[in-house]
Design a protein around this nucleic acid. Structure first.
Lengths: 261, 261
DNA sequence: ATTCATTGCGTTACACCGACACAATCTAAA
DNA sequence: TTTAGATTGTGTCGGTGTAACGCAATGAAT
């Protein structure tokens, strides 16, 4: 009924050039966490053709490191650079791919995907998670998806394919790593207050923390610089501002916060 | 000069059927840790054709979960079942594959790999690590490699392709996970003594631990059953034997040993 | 019987953690 | 201008776990 729009070049490219320019059967998916209004959110894209939300993902170029591919996806969507981005799991269930997603998408343009096309194969995907400053990102949708949204971690559900599970795994990883990696640098603006940092931790852990013990523990890691400024404007006592001490932060990223044993 | 032996069926199969039966461009590699003579060892295979040692690895069947593929490799090599096996990293550098390995191998049989054959492509590999009971395994080599060896972790070097790096990453992961996962069940015989368990931890961490504190900490995890038997035969006081409490062990595997936060 | 390394169990000092107290501060309302 | 109310900065205290070390018991070798 609806008049077919003409097929966008990037989509055509996938069908025609995918086979020779992209690594077969493997993709990357990015769980991009952002923090806003004291809530942890995830960047999702809407595939109108299947009426579902999905994670931003992409394919791996023939001569591209898979980590670079994930970074390219992240950068393309958010415009951000120098972001904490980490592999966390490989999803290799043979039934996870759903060709219907692609069929429906191309149907919008009245295009039928040829049998045995590169796109209609089983894909194994590598999950990455990233932490970004909500306020610094400028999100771009692309030809496959026209809408995006930051969706509260509590309200994520009914995503495309196995993306719910991917997010669950990402969140698990993030929570575990919170215990031994310094998290927060990318999720918060450069200057932030201790209560803001605490809210972030509480959102990730989904758990209230004691204000005073949190501060003591955080300062104990020695990765923060206390500034001689306060954040005025709130209706209460003005809290001090902090920044991350880049050098010590990087060191902690490599060596972990404790060491234990 | 040397008379060409005839090409073994599994190798021929790779060339001829790989394209239709195996997932393209993805492999799995297993870092199999064993414990013997108070040292941590890794199972390596020798590729005579390239005169280098390599990790046991394999490909993923078209309809096979990638985790099952890794498990299949582990089981094929060791004959063991019900083993702790975990993904730890994806190695996706575009230059990591080295077609020369395959060319040399097939040259042994006077066979030239056709251009653009399935085998001669870039492979992205998923690293898995496993912990096994050295004494329970019966190692099998296969048609690609004729020799195997347990090589001391300290002496691993100059492996094929990026396998040194893969092992380094595996060891890093193992050390990190030691702090929050119960390790040891698969590396030791069913019954073991506290000093034996300690030696294992010391081998993994490459660090001496205090005997008395180690015991207290271990018992504190409440994943061990103390038996009413001792290990006689040593030239000294007979230490008590322990087993892992399976139920609590599994629970700790899921939830971690601490929880922190 | 004696020797001696090893094991089982215990002690002490110290750091860290959770729970809570109290004073200082900032804005908004009175 | 003063007061109220919520929030922040700093400190205390008891419990817990850890590192470092002591000492008696054990068991094979001498």
């Amino acid at each position: 009924m609806a008049k077919s729009k003409s097929l966008p070049a990037p989509l055509k490219h996938l069908l025609v050039k995918g086979n020779e320019q992209l690594h077969p059967g493997i993709s990357v998916d990015c769980v991009i966490f952002g923090f806003h209004d004291n809530a942890l959110k995830i960047l999702l894209l809407n595939l109108e053709s299947v009426k579902k939300w999905s994670l931003p993902g992409g394919f791996v170029l023939n001569n591209e490191d898979i980590n670079d591919a994930a970074y390219r996806v992240l950068n393309l969507r958010t415009g951000l650079d120098n972001i904490f981005l980490q592999q966390f799991h490989v999803f290799g269930n043979p039934n996870r791919s759903d060709a219907k997603v692609h069929h429906l998408k191309f149907q919008e343009y009245g295009v039928k995907i040829p049998k045995n096309n590169w796109l209609i194969q089983r894909f194994i995907t590598v999950g990455y998670y990233a932490l970004i400053d909500f306020t610094a990102a400028t999100i771009k949708a692309d030809s496959y998806d026209s809408k995006f949204a930051w969706i509260d971690i509590e309200k994520v559900e009914n995503l495309m394919m196995d993306h719910d599970y991917i997010i669950e795994k990402a969140l698990q990883t993030l929570r575990t790593q919170l215990a031994y990696l310094p998290i927060g640098k990318n999720l918060l603006p450069k200057k932030f207050t201790m209560p803001e940092l605490q809210k972030l931790y509480e959102a990730i852990l989904n758990k209230k923390l004691d204000r005073r013990n949190f501060q003591r523990k955080m300062l104990g890691f020695e990765i923060l610089n206390k500034l001689n400024e306060t954040r005025k404007g709130g209706a209460h006592k003005a809290p001090f501002l902090y920044t991350f001490n880049d050098k010590k932060y990087q060191k902690a990223l490599k060596e972990g916060l404790y060491g234990s044993w």
